[in-house]
Simulated assay, not measured.
Amino acid sequence: MNDAGVGWIAAIIIGGIAGWLAEQFMKSSMGMIMNIVLGIVGAAIASAILSYFGVHLGGWIGYLVSGFIGAVLLIWVVRMIRPASA
């Protein structure tokens, strides 16, 4: 988070936006707290994966993009592990 130049308050706000965007993209229904968690954790996971491939996103926009990508991946993984009930 410090590498992206984003503080804790901004990380919560940007994480919430990234989680909400991922929720809309994946047509999922989660609450505001889960969106924030998905965005922040997703940003950390996506940043690690992208840096492995040599891609480094910085700043607020980079944090938003990596949060969105990571949150989408997390939603996808949860859907693969726990299929939707009938």
Score class of each variant (00 low, 15 high):
57 L>V: 03
75 I>V: 15
1 M>C: 05
20 W>L: 10
61 I>K: 05
10 A>S: 07
76 W>I: 03
59 G>M: 09
27 K>E: 15
39 G>P: 11
47 S>L: 00
30 M>S: 11
53 F>M: 02
52 Y>R: 12
42 G>C: 05
6 V>K: 00
25 F>D: 07
71 A>L: 09
52 Y>F: 15
16 G>E: 04
53 F>P: 00
72 V>S: 08
42 G>S: 05
39 G>Q: 02
22 A>V: 10
29 S>K: 11
73 L>K: 00
69 I>N: 13
30 M>P: 01
82 R>E: 02
86 A>S: 15
50 L>S: 08
83 P>W: 05
84 A>D: 15
66 S>A: 15
17 I>C: 06
48 A>H: 08
50 L>T: 01
85 S>N: 12
54 G>V: 01
28 S>W: 05
19 G>M: 05
22 A>G: 06
71 A>N: 06
36 I>G: 03
10 A>C: 01
78 V>H: 14
45 I>L: 14
36 I>D: 07
84 A>T: 15
85 S>T: 12
49 I>W: 10
82 R>K: 10
80 M>Y: 10
39 G>C: 12
37 V>P: 06
79 R>H: 14
16 G>Y: 07
10 A>F: 09
43 A>E: 04
34 M>A: 13
27 K>Y: 11
1 M>L: 04
85 S>P: 00
18 A>N: 01
79 R>F: 09
27 K>V: 07
23 E>N: 11
33 I>E: 07
13 I>D: 05
9 I>L: 12
42 G>Y: 05
60 W>Y: 12
81 I>T: 15
53 F>A: 05
46 A>V: 02
58 G>I: 13
47 S>C: 06
7 G>S: 11
37 V>K: 01
3 D>V: 10
2 N>V: 13
37 V>M: 13
67 G>W: 02
13 I>T: 09
65 V>E: 02
25 F>Q: 08
18 A>C: 03
81 I>L: 14
62 G>N: 05
3 D>L: 13
70 G>C: 14
55 V>M: 05
6 V>N: 00
28 S>R: 11
84 A>R: 14
50 L>C: 10
70 G>S: 07
30 M>I: 12
40 I>C: 08
2 N>T: 12
80 M>P: 00
58 G>F: 02
23 E>V: 01
56 H>G: 04
9 I>R: 01
22 A>Y: 06
26 M>Q: 10
35 N>K: 02
25 F>I: 11
9 I>T: 09
38 L>R: 01
71 A>F: 09
76 W>C: 01
19 G>T: 04
14 I>G: 07
51 S>C: 06
42 G>E: 04
68 F>L: 15
28 S>H: 12
31 G>S: 14
11 A>R: 03
18 A>M: 02
36 I>N: 02
69 I>A: 11
19 G>R: 01
15 G>D: 02
35 N>L: 03
2 N>I: 15
38 L>F: 13
80 M>R: 12
44 A>D: 06
9 I>W: 04
15 G>Y: 04
10 A>N: 07
17 I>G: 07
22 A>P: 09
6 V>R: 00
24 Q>G: 10
75 I>Y: 11
16 G>S: 05
59 G>K: 07
8 W>P: 06
76 W>T: 09
14 I>K: 00
27 K>A: 13
17 I>D: 02
35 N>R: 06
39 G>M: 06
39 G>N: 06
71 A>M: 12
21 L>F: 08
41 V>F: 09
36 I>H: 07
38 L>K: 00
